[in-house]
């Protein structure tokens, strides 16, 4: 692994696009993220947020055009499992765990396959990751399919951090959570961040996004319409129009 200088972004996305026939889901999007940042991405439904995560991780498809760099190294031509192993992990909106395996086995599998650890090291890393996300000890031996919505979010994040990623992409982690759980999720994001993991967060729940993000980018119709300090971005009239709808913005 090459040493990186301080000015080099950890994750850099250059002019990436994804087309599905005539539909352009992501349209020449560029941004860069510094190491240690919490980078928020907002946008209305269908604005291309999740597609952007899909093409960065290659799961389930790569970009139609454009480049992605991790610490200066191109990763957009790598295969999905190679991108994961290089240190870019994500969570999904849908459940993405092995339903019949226990929570602990799920995290362990991630440490072994993605983190490339030996079995003893992986066992320690799995317990540590579950400690980090505060999943109750007696729930760890339960099958993933028997966990609650919030516990499955904890599990997904634990699986990711057990593999010691450089960047974690969180795809609407607050979806389906109650208000107190959303508040716990914010603490969880800070904990992961405290482990030295750079975070990219897609979220519909704006208060959460504004609370934790240090930088906010807004997409609409697959293109970047604003990017900057969160408190400035949310006052941008273009963003207000896109996010709240033209009718309310016009009032």
């Amino acid at each position: 692994m090459l040493e990186t200088n301080d000015n080099q972004p950890l994750l850099e996305v250059r002019q990436v696009s994804r087309r599905f026939g005539a539909l352009v889901a992501v349209d020449r999007v560029s941004f860069s993220i510094q190491k240690g940042e919490i980078f928020g991405i907002a946008g209305p439904n269908g604005s291309g947020k999740s597609t952007l995560f899909n093409i960065i991780t290659g799961i389930p498809f790569p970009p139609s055009a454009g480049e992605v760099f991790l610490a200066g190294q191109p990763i957009h031509k790598l295969r999905p499992h190679q991108i994961s192993r290089a240190g870019v992990l994500r969570t999904f909106q849908k459940d993405a765990e092995f339903a019949t395996l226990s929570a602990l086995e799920n995290v362990y599998a991630s440490a072994v396959y993605c983190g490339q650890m030996g079995s003893n090291e992986a066992r320690v890393a799995a317990q540590q990751a579950l400690d980090d996300v505060s999943l109750a000890a007696e729930r760890r031996t339960k099958a993933a399919s028997d966990l609650s919505v919030f516990e499955r979010k904890q599990l997904m994040i634990a699986s990711a951090i057990a593999a010691r990623p450089k960047v974690l992409l969180l795809d609407e982690p607050a979806a389906g959570l109650t208000r107190p759980e959303t508040s716990d999720l914010a603490d969880l994001i800070y904990t992961v961040h405290g482990r030295g993991i750079t975070i990219v967060l897609i979220e519909h729940v704006l208060p959460l996004l504004l609370k934790v993000s240090e930088h906010l980018m807004v997409l609409n119709h697959g293109a970047v319409i604003a990017s900057g300090k969160p408190e400035e971005v949310v006052r941008n009239p273009v963003v207000v129009a896109a996010y709240l709808g033209k009718r309310e913005a016009g009032l």
């Binding site: 991780t57 799961i59 389930p60 192993r85 994500r90 993405a96 092995f98 699986s159």
Partner: peptide, 15 residues
């Protein structure tokens, strides 16, 4: 693992 969930398998670095 791939049989249960191919996307999750890719995510944890399985080819």
């Amino acid at each position: 693992a791939v049989g249960q969930n191919a996307d999750a398998a890719r995510l944890i670095g399985i080819d």
